[in-house]
Amino acid sequence: MYNQKVIDEFRNPQNAHEMPDADCVGEVGGPECGDIMRVYLKIKDGVVTDASFLTFGCASAIATSSVATRLVKGKTIAEALKVTNKQVVQELGELPAQKYHCSVLAEEAIKDAIDNYYKQHPELKQ
C-alpha cells in the first residue's frame, strides 16, 4: 500500500521530538479522528531555524509530519507558509488516495504554528 519512501520516512522520521524552547507550536486533528499533529518551530529574524513534531497517527501521518518539518527548515516565514500538501506528497513520491488528508494535516500544522507565532508577535505580521 505504501511505497518505500513512505516506509523509510515512517521508519526513520526526522525531527520527531518535543521542542521545549520552541518559539511557536501548532496543532491540528484530534484523538477521536485518530490523527494529531503538533509542530514546533524556532524562528529567528523571520527565518525558521528549526522545526520538529510529535504525531499521534498512522504511518503516513508520521511520514508527512517528518517531510513537512524538513521542508520548512531554513525557509523564511513567507516561504514556509507557501509549503503545500502537494509538495509534501511529491517528496514522498506518492500517497494512497485515502491518506492525502495526512499531507493536508501536515500543511495545516505548519500554518497553525506560524499563526500562533504572529499572535504572540503581532508587530511582525506583514
Binding site: R11, G34, C58, A61, I62, K99
Partner: peptide, 24 residues
C-alpha cells in the same frame, strides 16, 4: 496514546503480521 495502523506497520517491518481495527 498510539494509533493502530502505525503499530501494525512497525510490527510488519519487524516481521510480524497482525491486524488493526483503526480507521486507517
Amino acid at each position: 496514546y498510539i494509533e493502530g495502523e502505525a503499530i501494525l506497520m512497525l510490527l510488519d517491518l519487524k516481521g510480524i503480521a497482525c491486524s488493526s481495527g483503526s480507521a486507517c
